[in-house]
Amino acid sequence: MKVKVRYFAALREKVGASEELVETHAQNAIELFHQLNKKHNFPLDPGHLKVSINRHYQDWNCQIKADDEIVFLPPVAGG
């Protein structure tokens, strides 16, 4: 299946793109993270990131499905 992954802040700069379409067999967000981490060597690990699926915060073990929009969110710093 294909999913869309978007990148922001430190992850966007490391990846060199703000989004990519990813072909994956990952069942959940943490499996997808590990798949992509091999390619991009992200500067933050899951303990320092949160994950959103279709613009809602979710747990790392939340199931993903085709066409989902997934974001690994660095620590927020608004305000």
Binding site: F8, A10, V71, P74, V76, G78, G79
Partner: peptide, 10 residues
């Protein structure tokens, strides 16, 4: 807002 809204500061 500071805790939850996805905004980042450089």
């Amino acid at each position: 807002i500071k805790r939850r809204v996805p905004i980042w500061k450089k």
